[in-house]
Amino acid sequence: MSQKPTSPSAATATSKAGKPAEKTARTGVSYADAGVDIDSGDATKQRIKHLARKTFNKNVLSEIGGFGGLFKLDLAKYPDPVLVSSADGVGTKLKVAFTLGVHHTVGADLVNHCVNDIAVQGADPLFFLDYLATGKIDPLVIEKIVTGIADACRANGCALIGGETAQMPGFYADGEYDLAGTIIGVVNRDRIITGSAIQAGDMLFGLPSTGLHTNGYSLARKLLFEVAGYNPDLYVTALKDKVGNALMQTHRSYLSVLRKLTAGGVVSGMAHITGGGITENFPRILPKGLCAQVEMNSWEIPPLFQHLQELGNVEQDEMMRTFNMGIGMIVVVPAEQVKKAKAILNRANERFHVIGRVAKGVRRVNYV
């Protein structure tokens, strides 16, 4: 009968045949044994630092890697500053990214969504923080994602000053991750746009979206992949595109054109059309006692939305409160400023549609 070691430090044991067993070295369980590769994480963070530094400006006072990012506010430019913040994610659009192996656009989706959310209040973006969580770090995938974030930050004049890259083995399936971000912007108090200036008779200018942006993907994926049985690489005549490409169009930033409109003094309110569509987003800026009359024939619904509706026989009301339907931003323009607003948009080479007006009534959107 073999002898059992009496303590963890025992180096040998006797086999059933009476011969000494091989010596075994006992080592402690490491973080890597639990699925977290610290070395890979550290290497990835070095790549991220390089990308983030490209977005820095003179107001960034810290390096990537500190416990917090430091940013100096320019009080000469903003003498009466009000900080504006927003946080969001990319949602189940990421599922399409996983399937296609396309990771460089979702970072831009995230930044542009957040930029638009604060731009409608007249704010300029200052800095951005990202949160990226995955089961196992793939340095090349992480680099593609952060490259998209950094490129979009630079395009919007925003510094990427920090964030978190988390390894959470067992929490995410292999090859999957989640992505979210927080943006901080600033606006002078007397330039804040809340919609309080909106009046009956104001006109609604709709600015085109680039596809679904980052909303409605759970329904879109069900209709395209389950109901229709499409695969992402299939070219669909009704879409005039491959399914995956149509779904992965980047959520655009409206910052540049909104700045031109606000500088021109032709804006009384703005609404970013995200989850909830026009139906639920536009009333958020309407004063009490006012409604929106939206004319459904005032713009052409893009093929993607038309095809989605046909595939599932989706009710019109459901479409309007799930998708942006081709309108990603609504700008409210006082009636007397319509001509000037059109001129500004034309000079900016920005397509637009006058999609309705503000009227007296219950605070909601009426489709006519």
Rank of each mutant, 00 (worst) to 15 (best):
K16P: 13
A17K: 13
K19R: 12
P20D: 09
A25S: 12
G28K: 11
G35C: 12
G41Q: 11
A43F: 02
K49N: 09
T55L: 06
S62A: 06
F67P: 09
G69L: 10
F71I: 01
K72E: 15
Y78V: 04
P81W: 03
V84E: 11
S86A: 15
G89Y: 03
V90Y: 03
T92V: 10
V96E: 09
V96A: 14
F98P: 00
V102P: 01
H103T: 08
H104A: 14
T105M: 12
V106E: 13
D109S: 04
V115F: 08
V115K: 08
A119W: 01
L129F: 07
G135S: 05
D138N: 15
I142C: 13
E143T: 15
K144Q: 15
T147R: 14
G148F: 06
G148P: 06
C153K: 08
I161Y: 04
G162Y: 03
T165H: 09
M168Y: 03
Y172E: 05
Y172T: 03
D174R: 12
G175I: 12
G175A: 10
I184A: 13
G195Q: 04
G195W: 05
A197G: 00
G201F: 01
L204R: 01
S209Q: 03
T210Q: 13
L212S: 06
N215A: 15
N215M: 06
Y217D: 05
S218Q: 14
S218M: 12
L224W: 02
A228N: 09
P232G: 01
L239S: 05
K240F: 01
K242G: 06
A246C: 11
L247S: 03
M248R: 04
H251L: 11
R252M: 13
S253F: 04
G265T: 04
G269S: 02
A271Q: 10
G275M: 06
G277Q: 05
G277C: 07
I278W: 00
T279P: 00
L286P: 05
P287F: 07
G289A: 07
G289S: 06
C291Q: 14
E310A: 15
M320C: 05
I330E: 04
I330W: 01
V332T: 10
P334T: 07
Q337K: 15
K340Y: 01
K340L: 13
L345E: 05
H353P: 00
V354W: 00
R364A: 14
V365E: 07
